[in-house]
Amino acid sequence: MFEARLLRGSILKKVLEAIKDLLTQATFDCDDSGIQLQAMDNSHVSLVSLQLRADGFDKYRCDRNISMGMNLNSVAKILKCAGDKDTVTMKAQDNADTVTFVFESPNQEKVSDYEMKLMNLDLEHLGIPETEYSCTIRMPSAEFARICRDLSQFGDSMVIACTKEGVKFSATGEIGSANIKLAQTASVDKEEEAVIIEMDEPVTLTFACQYLNYFTKATSLSPQVQLSMSADVPLVVEYRIQDIGHIRYYLAPKIED
């Protein structure tokens, strides 16, 4: 028996919004530590890694490890039926070929259940090595979303250049060029609003705007986003989900052959 109950059901709604444009299907791997999902987009340029820890749920039970392959479009449709304040419970029997989502309104007056067929997905699983990154940038997630949106008007690619002074986002295209510089916040009153840079070596990398814009669909999950970069390795864009886990997006850089 698998059962995961979350009073803050809107978290699951937001998680689906954060992955459904990038992934069409994915496997939710459940064990007694929680729920993990790892999947590449169709073009195999980016990778999504989601972790929801068991202790972040209001009730969590997983008697046997189960892997539930799901069509994410279908899951998104179902979760759209949940109210923002609803409690959401996912449950499945051992070896089941369906998963059930139960939504309860705060006053328990409305209870809905949606049963969905599971899929057998044979997806490649990648091992992500432990990496010490040359630069990590923490900044407000809404600011990052704004920058990605603004710069994608100028070109398909965005250059992210991080030095100890700050971080510069640039794009160039037919209509001209755009540069946005963010300085490290001098004094941090509210950490959520700060730009904080940790840098061992300066790094400049180029990324496809389209994917960065997909990643920013996670903005509502966290007030802050963390970007981690090293030369010639994938960028990590991480949104921490309060008290329960994180969603990380890995994006391969564009590099000279």
Binding site: S43, E124, G127, P129, T206, A208, P234, I255
Partner: peptide, 14 residues
């Protein structure tokens, strides 16, 4: 010009 790399080349298949 720069080319888009795939993600698989950076990580190990399991």
């Amino acid at each position: 010009s720069k080319n888009q790399k795939g993600i698989v080349g950076f990580f190990n298949k399991q």
